[in-house]
Every structure is written in C-alpha cells, then in structure tokens.
Simulated assay, not measured.
Amino acid sequence: MLERRPREDRTEVTFVLPADTPPGPVSVVGDFNNWQPGIHTLAPRKDGNRAVTVALPATSTHSFRYLAAGDYWFNDDNAETQDGPNSRLHT
C-alpha cells in the first residue's frame, strides 16, 4: 500500500506492507535511492504493519520494487502502473 502526504515542495510517500508477508527484512528500492537495498528498510508500526517514508519531489514519477530476504523481488499491487518489471508511482 502507498500513502501520500503532499507538502509544499515535496510529497512524502509511505510504503506499507503487512508485518510478516513476506517474512524477514524488506527494503523499498527504486530510482530515488539508486536501487540500493537497505537504504529504505521497512520498520514495524503500531498498527501491526511495517513501513518506511521517503520524501520525493512534487509532481514526479518513480520506478520501484520491494526486496525481501532471500533475494525475493516483488511489486506493489497498489501502484498506479507497471514499468516492465517495476512498479511506478506518481507524486
């Protein structure tokens, strides 16, 4: 799931996944972090999910995927579109 909070000069996008699906650590990787795992690792939230928030430029488009333990890559079913193997989001 993607949550967006528009700000004056950026959009804060929160990437949200269930606490245990998939199991183990999960990072969101994309063109906004040069596809580097571990920079944006999802952390537990009080609501039982896990999430990470990334500040992105307003009115921009980005490709991303999730990377879980065991080199398991997957997309976000709630993304607006797909770009080949990647999810796409618009701020």
Rank of each mutant, 00 (worst) to 15 (best):
L67Q: 08
I39M: 06
N49C: 07
G38N: 05
S60Q: 07
L17K: 03
R65G: 04
A68K: 00
E12S: 10
P25R: 13
E80A: 13
T11W: 00
G48T: 07
L42V: 01
P18E: 10
L42R: 02
V13F: 11
V52Q: 04
E8S: 14
S60D: 09
A68F: 01
G30L: 09
W35E: 07
V28F: 03
A69I: 11
I39W: 00
R10N: 11
A69S: 13
R88K: 14
D83T: 14
A51H: 07
D71S: 14
G84W: 02
N75C: 12
P6H: 08
T91C: 10
L67W: 12
P57V: 09
A51D: 09
L89P: 01
D83V: 15
G70T: 05
P22D: 09
P23K: 12
Y72A: 09
R50A: 05
T53C: 06
D47R: 00
R4E: 13
A68V: 04
P57Y: 07
E80Y: 06
P22S: 10
V28Q: 02
S27L: 05
G38K: 01
R50F: 06
F15T: 08
S87W: 03
D83I: 13
V13K: 01
A43P: 02
P22F: 03
Q82E: 11
R7K: 10
D77A: 15
S60L: 04
G38L: 01
L42E: 05
H62E: 05
G48I: 08
G48N: 09
K46I: 11
P57N: 08
P57D: 13
L42T: 00
V16L: 04
N75H: 06
F64W: 04
N33P: 05
F74R: 04
S87D: 08
R88V: 15
A55V: 05
D31F: 02
N49T: 15
T81C: 12
N49L: 09
N75L: 11
D71Y: 10
H40Y: 15
D77H: 06
P23S: 13
I39T: 15
D77E: 14
Y66H: 01
N75G: 14
A69M: 08
E8P: 06
L17Q: 08
G24W: 13
L89K: 01
L89S: 03
R4C: 05
T59W: 03
P22A: 10
G70V: 12
A69C: 00
V52T: 13
T59L: 11
G48M: 07
P85C: 01
P37V: 06
N49V: 08
N75A: 10
P23N: 05
D31N: 10
S63L: 10
T81G: 03
G30H: 02
V29T: 08
A69R: 11
N33A: 05
P44A: 11
